[in-house]
Measured scan of single mutants.
Amino acid sequence: DETGKFLVLSLYDYQEKSPREVTMKKGDILTLLNSTNKDWWKVEVNGRQGFVPAAYVKFL
């Protein structure tokens, strides 16, 4: 199980638009929880879990 094993870097600021999403700032290091959807990845940032656009992050 690779859940929570990968870190990704936020390339852009992102403001959550729904309760299922999370806000991140450019340069944030996020824990990747799920990347099965090619468009939206589930991450943990600042103690919160939610989705961010996959195009806004990259693997470290």
Rank of each mutant, 00 (worst) to 15 (best):
Asp1Phe: 13
Asp1Trp: 13
Asp1Gly: 14
Asp1Val: 14
Asp1Thr: 14
Asp1Glu: 13
Glu2Asp: 13
Glu2Trp: 08
Glu2Asn: 14
Thr3Leu: 13
Thr3Arg: 13
Thr3Asn: 13
Thr3Gln: 13
Thr3Ile: 13
Thr3Tyr: 13
Thr3Ala: 13
Gly4Tyr: 12
Gly4Ala: 12
Gly4His: 15
Gly4Gln: 14
Gly4Arg: 14
Gly4Ser: 13
Lys5Thr: 12
Lys5Cys: 15
Lys5Leu: 12
Lys5Pro: 14
Lys5Gln: 12
Lys5Asn: 11
Phe6Ser: 11
Phe6Met: 13
Phe6Trp: 14
Phe6His: 14
Phe6Ile: 15
Leu7Pro: 03
Leu7Asn: 06
Leu7Ser: 07
Leu7Phe: 14
Leu7Gln: 10
Leu7Cys: 12
Leu7Gly: 03
Val8Trp: 08
Val8Met: 09
Val8Cys: 12
Val8Arg: 02
Val8Pro: 00
Leu9Tyr: 11
Leu9Asp: 01
Leu9Pro: 00
Leu9Ala: 05
Leu9Arg: 08
Leu9Trp: 05
Leu9Glu: 13
Ser10Ile: 08
Ser10Lys: 04
Ser10Glu: 02
Ser10Ala: 15
Ser10Gln: 03
Ser10Tyr: 07
Ser10Leu: 08
Ser10Met: 06
Leu11Phe: 05
Leu11Asp: 03
Leu11Pro: 01
Leu11Trp: 05
Leu11Glu: 05
Leu11Met: 10
Leu11Cys: 11
Leu11Ala: 06
Leu11Val: 09
Tyr12Asn: 10
Tyr12Ser: 11
Tyr12Leu: 11
Tyr12Trp: 10
Tyr12Val: 13
Asp13Tyr: 05
Asp13Pro: 05
Asp13Arg: 01
Asp13Gln: 03
Asp13Val: 03
Asp13Asn: 07
Asp13Glu: 05
Tyr14Leu: 02
Tyr14Ala: 02
Tyr14Val: 02
Tyr14Phe: 08
Tyr14Ser: 02
Tyr14Asp: 02
Gln15Gly: 07
Gln15Thr: 14
Gln15Ala: 12
Gln15Cys: 11
Gln15Asn: 14
Gln15Asp: 15
Glu16Ala: 15
Glu16Gln: 13
Glu16Gly: 15
Glu16Asp: 05
Glu16Thr: 08
Glu16Met: 11
Glu16Phe: 06
Glu16Arg: 11
Glu16Ile: 05
Lys17Ser: 11
Lys17Tyr: 05
Lys17Gln: 13
Lys17Gly: 08
Ser18Gln: 08
Ser18Asn: 12
Ser18Cys: 10
Ser18Arg: 08
Ser18Tyr: 06
Ser18Glu: 08
Ser18Ala: 08
Pro19Phe: 10
Pro19Gly: 09
Pro19Met: 09
Pro19Asp: 12
Pro19Lys: 09
Arg20Gln: 13
Arg20Thr: 12
Arg20Glu: 12
Arg20Gly: 15
Arg20Cys: 15
Arg20Lys: 12
Arg20Phe: 15
Glu21Ala: 06
Glu21Thr: 09
Glu21Gln: 10
Glu21Val: 05
Glu21Tyr: 06
Glu21Pro: 03
Glu21Leu: 06
Glu21Ser: 06
Glu21Met: 05
Val22Trp: 02
Val22His: 02
Val22Asn: 02
Val22Met: 09
Val22Gly: 01
Val22Ala: 05
Thr23Met: 04
Thr23Ser: 15
Thr23Phe: 04
Thr23Trp: 04
Thr23His: 04
Thr23Asp: 03
Met24His: 01
Met24Asp: 00
Lys25Ala: 09
Lys25Asp: 03
Lys25Gly: 05
Lys25Cys: 09
Lys25Leu: 08
Lys26Arg: 11
Lys26Met: 08
Lys26Ile: 07
Lys26Trp: 04
Lys26Glu: 07
Gly27Ser: 03
Gly27Val: 01
Gly27Trp: 04
Gly27Met: 02
Gly27Thr: 01
Asp28Gly: 03
Asp28Val: 05
Asp28Asn: 06
Asp28Thr: 07
Asp28Arg: 02
Ile29Asn: 02
Ile29Phe: 06
Ile29Val: 12
Ile29Gln: 05
Ile29Tyr: 06
Ile29Leu: 09
Ile29Lys: 06
Ile29Met: 07
Ile29Pro: 02
Ile29Asp: 00
Ile29His: 05
Leu30Gln: 01
Leu30His: 02
Leu30Phe: 05
Leu30Arg: 00
Leu30Thr: 01
Leu30Asp: 01
Leu30Asn: 01
Leu30Trp: 02
Leu30Ala: 08
Leu30Pro: 01
Thr31Met: 12
Thr31Gln: 11
Thr31Tyr: 12
Thr31His: 10
Thr31Leu: 15
Thr31Glu: 09
Thr31Pro: 09
Thr31Asp: 04
Leu32Val: 12
Leu32Gln: 00
Leu32Asn: 00
Leu32Ala: 03
Leu32Glu: 00
Leu32Arg: 01
Leu32Met: 04
Leu32His: 01
Leu33Ala: 02
Leu33Gly: 00
Leu33Phe: 03
Leu33Ser: 02
Leu33Pro: 00
Leu33Cys: 08
Asn34Tyr: 06
Asn34Gly: 07
Asn34Cys: 13
Asn34Met: 07
Asn34Lys: 06
Asn34Glu: 14
Ser35Glu: 06
Ser35Gln: 10
Ser35Val: 09
Ser35Asp: 11
Ser35Asn: 13
Ser35Lys: 11
Thr36Tyr: 10
Thr36Ser: 14
Asn37Lys: 06
Asn37Ile: 05
Asn37Ala: 08
Asn37Glu: 10
Asn37Leu: 09
Asn37Trp: 07
Lys38Phe: 07
Lys38Val: 09
Lys38Glu: 11
Lys38Cys: 11
Asp39Ser: 10
Asp39Leu: 13
Asp39Glu: 12
Asp39Asn: 12
Asp39Gln: 10
Asp39Ile: 13
Asp39Phe: 15
Trp40Phe: 07
Trp40Lys: 01
Trp40Cys: 06
Trp40Met: 06
Trp40Ala: 01
Trp40Asn: 01
Trp40Leu: 03
Trp41Thr: 03
Trp41Cys: 04
Trp41Val: 09
Trp41Asn: 00
Trp41Met: 04
Trp41Gly: 00
Trp41Lys: 01
Lys42His: 11
Lys42Pro: 01
Lys42Gln: 13
Lys42Met: 15
Lys42Asn: 06
Lys42Val: 14
Val43Ile: 08
Val43Cys: 02
Val43Glu: 00
Val43Ala: 00
Val43Ser: 00
Val43Tyr: 00
Glu44Val: 07
Glu44Cys: 10
Glu44Pro: 00
Glu44Met: 08
Glu44Ser: 09
Glu44Thr: 06
Glu44His: 04
Glu44Trp: 05
Val45Leu: 15
Val45Ile: 15
Val45Glu: 01
Asn46Thr: 04
Asn46Asp: 12
Asn46Leu: 07
Asn46Lys: 09
Asn46Glu: 10
Asn46Trp: 05
Asn46Ile: 04
Asn46Ala: 10
Asn46Arg: 10
Gly47Asn: 07
Gly47Pro: 00
Gly47Thr: 04
Gly47Asp: 07
Gly47Lys: 05
Gly47Gln: 05
Gly47Val: 02
Gly47His: 05
Gly47Met: 05
Arg48Val: 10
Arg48Ser: 06
Arg48Thr: 07
Arg48Gln: 08
Gln49Leu: 07
Gln49Asn: 06
Gln49Ala: 12
Gln49Ile: 15
Gly50Glu: 01
Gly50Gln: 01
Gly50Trp: 03
Gly50Pro: 00
Gly50Thr: 01
Gly50Ser: 01
Gly50Cys: 03
Phe51Ala: 01
Phe51Asp: 03
Phe51Tyr: 15
Phe51Gly: 01
Phe51Met: 08
Phe51Arg: 02
Phe51Cys: 12
Phe51Thr: 02
Phe51Ile: 06
Val52Gln: 00
Val52Ile: 10
Val52Phe: 02
Val52Trp: 01
Pro53Phe: 05
Pro53Thr: 03
Pro53Tyr: 04
Pro53Leu: 04
Pro53Met: 03
Pro53Asn: 03
Pro53Val: 05
Ala54Val: 06
Ala54Gly: 04
Ala54Trp: 02
Ala54Asn: 02
Ala54Thr: 05
Ala55Gln: 12
Ala55Val: 10
Ala55Arg: 14
Ala55Met: 12
Ala55Pro: 07
Ala55Cys: 14
Ala55Ser: 14
Tyr56Cys: 14
Tyr56Ser: 11
Tyr56Asn: 07
Tyr56Met: 14
Tyr56Trp: 06
Tyr56Ala: 12
Tyr56Leu: 15
Tyr56Gln: 06
Val57Arg: 00
Val57Met: 06
Val57Pro: 00
Val57Asn: 00
Val57Asp: 01
Val57Ala: 01
Val57Gly: 00
Val57Ile: 10
Val57Ser: 00
Val57Gln: 00
Val57His: 00
Val57Lys: 00
Lys58Thr: 15
Lys58Tyr: 10
Lys58Glu: 15
Lys58Val: 15
Lys58Ala: 14
Phe59Tyr: 10
Phe59Met: 14
Phe59Glu: 09
Phe59Leu: 15
Leu60Glu: 07
Leu60Val: 11
Leu60Trp: 10
Leu60Ser: 05
Leu60Ala: 07
